[in-house]
Computed example of a mutant assay.
Amino acid sequence: MSTLLSGLGADLPLIAAPMAGGPSTPALVTAAARAGGLGFLAGGYKTAQALAGQIHTTRAEGVAFGVNLFVPNPVRISREAYRRYAREMRTEADRYQVRLPEEPIEDDDHWTDKIDLLTSSPIPWVSFTFGIPDRAVVSALRRAGSTVLQSVTSADEARRAADAGVDALIVQAPAAGGHSATLTPARPLAPVRLPDLIAAVRRAVALPLIAAGGITTAADVADALGAGAEAAMAGTVLLRTHESGASAPHKAALVDPAFDTTVVTRAFTGRPARALRNQFTDRYDPIAPAGYPALHHLTGPLRRAATAAADTRLIHLWAGAGHRQSRAEPVTDTLERLARGL
């Protein structure tokens, strides 16, 4: 059993990944813990008050859990490039009668408020994505009693995270659904298999590792653990579970024969993210500039309107390469399937 997880009472080396935007509900996180694993609340895109509410709900269930935050690591975009991209999608916005932000919004996702929340009301695990927090932030969380984890996508990023003083690493391969954790989002993602990435990171640092990205079968879990990871983190395979907060059109698209391919695109948010290929990715990916969080805020009103209308042509249908393995079932059943043979 993983020494990293055993202190939290987990029986399985399986973790439910944080999926921002709705899927990672307190119910999903609680179910993962009761199935013998661990779950993460997704703090991204939430105010500190909203995150505190989810923490309160989960804590009341008496289970161990973690919280993931997005670290401010903006990809700047010029006003001209932003406006040019906005003009391209004006027809779609007009169809849904939504107003798109006229100027780039460059916020920090309520960073300071959320760090204050997690240091004043500590939880067992805190993980970071998109950037590496200052060493002072890491130290404050560790002093508060949290185990601090950093998402990385390369051996170089792993070394930088180790220098910041984190306790463990979440090693994410490019097969992952949703946003890549890359620290350099303007660069193309290097194609690498998860076991090979785990092995490379193990050679670079001595920290405990959690494998993520493309974990959808028991064989994937076995490969990740065999490569040297202490646990495997699954996301996409949990999207259709009963406890998932993913939208109904998103859940349906994951098994719709019309959506048979995933692509890495920055069309929705200005950062690379893997999604089901649809009309939006076909139309806008070739012309999408890099620019985060500005593009996330630009396309947000349109994406919300499309989701409400179940218009899967325009929704950000985040999905990993193994999305066909997701099933409409309780989280417990999914984790039991992933754990077979352990």
Rank of each mutant, 00 (worst) to 15 (best):
R160C: 01
S146N: 04
T57S: 11
F70P: 00
Q54I: 00
A253D: 09
E157H: 05
F259Y: 15
P301E: 12
T91F: 04
S6R: 15
I210D: 05
G226L: 07
L197C: 08
A81S: 14
A248H: 09
R142G: 07
I123M: 06
A50H: 05
G320K: 09
R90F: 02
A186K: 06
D156Q: 10
A290L: 10
H242E: 15
E157D: 09
R340M: 10
S6W: 05
Y96F: 15
I170Y: 03
A162M: 03
Q279F: 08
A168G: 07
G226V: 04
A16M: 11
A211Q: 10
S139R: 10
V137K: 02
D256Y: 11
E243T: 07
L197A: 09
W111M: 00
S6D: 15
R160A: 13
K114P: 04
A273E: 11
T236N: 09
R193P: 00
A52E: 12
V63F: 08
R271C: 08
R79I: 09
A222K: 14
T153A: 11
I198S: 03
T119I: 13
A206Y: 01
P208L: 02
V71I: 07
A162E: 15
G291Y: 10
L149F: 10
R160S: 10
A212R: 01
Q279I: 04
R76P: 02
A288H: 10
T91C: 01
D109K: 03
A328Y: 12
V255D: 12
A35D: 10
R283H: 14
K251Y: 07
L4D: 13
S154W: 01
L207T: 09
I115D: 03
A33L: 07
E61Q: 14
R266N: 15
Y85M: 12
L194K: 07
M233G: 03
L12H: 10
R83I: 02
T262G: 09
A321W: 01
R142K: 14
F70D: 03
L149C: 01
T119Y: 03
L209A: 04
P272H: 12
D156E: 14
P208S: 03
T334G: 13
L12P: 08
P289N: 11
L238Y: 11
R187C: 04
A222E: 14
A305Q: 11
L4Q: 12
G228V: 06
I170K: 00
E157G: 00
M89I: 15
T241I: 07
P257V: 12
M233Y: 12
A35Q: 09
S2L: 04
T307S: 14
V331H: 12
Q54G: 00
R304A: 15
V71Y: 09
P272I: 10
K46V: 00
R99S: 14
A288W: 11
G145F: 06
D156S: 08
L295C: 11
L314Q: 08
E88P: 00
T91I: 09
A212H: 04
R95H: 14
T119D: 04
A294Q: 14
L335G: 08
S146Q: 03
V138C: 02
A16Q: 14
Y284T: 08
S120H: 12
G300P: 00
P133V: 01
Q54P: 00
G21I: 07
P188C: 05
A93W: 08
R159A: 11
R34F: 11
L183F: 13
S24I: 10
Q279Y: 11
D333I: 02
A162S: 12
F65K: 01
V137H: 06
A81G: 11
